[in-house]
Computed example of a mutant assay.
Amino acid sequence: MLGKILCIIGLSAGLPLGCLAQVSEATKQSIVTGKGLNVPRSGVFWTTPTENSGVVGDFYIDSLWRKGHVKLMKPVAQVGGLESDSIAGIDIRYNVLNDELELLADVAKKDIRVIRGSQLKSFKSNGDLGTVEYINLADHDPKGELKGFGAVLASGKLTLVKAFKTKITKPNYNPGFGTGEKNTIVRISSDYYLLTPSGAEKVSLSKKSFLPLMSDKKVAVEQYTKERNLDFKDETQVAALVQFYNSK
């Protein structure tokens, strides 16, 4: 694991992917300790995650480290002149507040590196219920209004995503009475979007919100919902409906 991460982090020091076996031990040590990596030279990696003093609460979609696969916005050079935009077999977790994907480089040393969200096209995380793909919402919004990442619930002509965002409550401490909260409180919330080649449509989990967007297959969709007595407040059932629509 560490060997893979070292190889990846070498990009920030100007080294091509896969070349650590060809550099000196001193250079390897410099990479693993983060020396000289305090600025994202390659535009991809930082040394450590952004610190948030005085901020407490929920920061992650999933706070556990999960095995994952990363797809970058742009390919990076490898040894032999080849390029790759993918990194596989790494431990990751996504910080919604900072829009950073954290990579666990060394468990014992608690060495964490990050990839900024703007450099990521997507990532896949292997959780308790299987593999979930998260896509960069900005990459699917021609208006440039969306940001962050959303979990893909159904994909095809219509892609249903659950987009994660932070809800922030500012400190309200009153020193005169000694009451209130001194810290900024962060909570994770979510919205739903239907993505099409032409853009993104915000939707709610309701019949009124979804059916008009499937009007070109109205008869089949209405029959599907009626036969299954579909509960539009259940995202799993709605995702199945979108997948059914895509199959027609």
Rank of each mutant, 00 (worst) to 15 (best):
K233C: 08
S30W: 04
A200L: 11
P75K: 11
K226W: 05
A220E: 06
V32P: 01
Y173L: 07
S53P: 09
L158P: 05
E100P: 01
A105Q: 12
N38L: 01
G80I: 01
D234M: 08
D99Y: 05
G150D: 00
K121T: 01
R41A: 15
I168K: 11
Q22E: 07
L37S: 09
K226S: 07
G36A: 07
S53G: 09
N229T: 09
V132H: 11
P75Y: 03
I185S: 13
K4Q: 06
M214P: 00
V221S: 04
G150P: 01
G148R: 02
N95A: 04
Y224P: 13
N183L: 10
K109C: 00
D216E: 08
T184M: 05
Y192V: 15
G68L: 03
V39E: 10
G18N: 10
G43V: 06
I185V: 10
Q29Y: 02
T166K: 04
I61C: 05
A21M: 12
S53E: 13
Q243G: 15
S86W: 09
I168W: 02
G144T: 00
V161E: 07
G81K: 15
G178P: 03
D231Y: 04
L137P: 00
T196E: 11
Q223I: 12
L2R: 11
N172A: 00
V44M: 06
I8A: 13
I61H: 01
S215V: 15
I87R: 07
K233N: 10
Y192T: 12
K121G: 14
Y224M: 10
N172M: 01
I135K: 10
E25G: 08
F123E: 01
G81F: 15
E25H: 02
A220G: 01
F59I: 10
T166W: 02
S206P: 07
K248Q: 15
E222Y: 05
S215I: 14
L213P: 03
G10I: 02
K207R: 13
K121M: 04
I92E: 06
L6R: 07
T48C: 06
G150K: 12
L6V: 04
L37T: 00
A154V: 07
